[in-house]
């Protein structure tokens, strides 16, 4: 587990929204580089992800933390010059066609963003062709597909098949509460998980 020493990182991990906002503003005024501030926020988020994984944090804490992050990033993003710099890589994500559920996907997006990836979120009910386009456009090494409904599993298989057929050099991660190894094999995906925080670990592997 990460050992947090920075006040801002600790404030995020303790879900103290007021303190986070105050510290972000204070540091910006003091001339700290926005990227450095983002790094401290990410350290805090990593810690929150770990606490979720070990069962100390629940969805209520994760969602609250995500909103605090959103507030802080709204302050920082306009000043971050050129956007893309400093990211660890591009990841395309979305919920497969026919399914409009986004809770799980949004948590994974939050954790991935929080640990420093540039996440291109295509939203819900996404057709396979749109996934392929976005992977091409962003030259993304990782594509993450989300599903909740069992009735949309065929749609997941279709998406994975089409992406693989496209010949793109991209790893495919599938996720959802009902996803298991058997289904991953059946789909032909590279990775699968039914735990949001594992998404980060899989990304580490892909971007290692």
């Amino acid at each position: 587990m990460v050992n947090l020493t920075d006040e801002l990182s600790i404030a995020i991990a303790e879900l103290d929204g007021d303190k986070v906002m105050a510290l972000v503003k204070e540091r910006l005024q003091a001339g700290v580089k926005p990227l450095e501030i983002v790094k401290k926020l990410q350290d805090g988020m990593t810690r929150v992800g770990e606490l979720f994984e070990t069962g100390e944090f629940f969805l209520s804490e994760l969602i609250n933390c995500g909103e605090i992050m959103k507030g802080a990033m709204a302050e920082l993003e306009p000043i971050l010059a050129g956007g893309g710099q400093g990211y660890r890589g591009n990841i395309v994500i979305g919920t497969v066609k026919g399914d409009i559920h986004d809770l799980g996907k949004n948590i994974v997006v939050m954790l991935l963003k929080g640990t420093g990836y540039n996440v291109i979120d295509l939203g819900v009910d996404v057709a396979p062709e749109r996934f392929i386009e976005a992977v091409k456009e962003n030259n993304a090494p990782l594509l993450a597909l989300s599903v909740l409904l069992t009735s949309c599993l065929d749609s997941m298989k279709e998406a994975v098949t089409k992406v693989k057929e496209s010949g793109l050099d991209v790893k495919v991660l599938i996720g959802g509460p009902i996803i298991d190894d058997n289904f991953r094999e059946y789909c032909g995906a590279d990775f699968s998980s039914n735990i949001a925080s594992e998404g980060v670990k899989i990304a580490e592997k892909v971007f290692a």
Binding site: S60, N64, E67
Partner: peptide, 10 residues
């Protein structure tokens, strides 16, 4: 909604 209620709790 989910996000709304979770923030309300805090």
């Amino acid at each position: 909604g989910l996000t709304g209620i979770m923030l309300d709790l805090y």
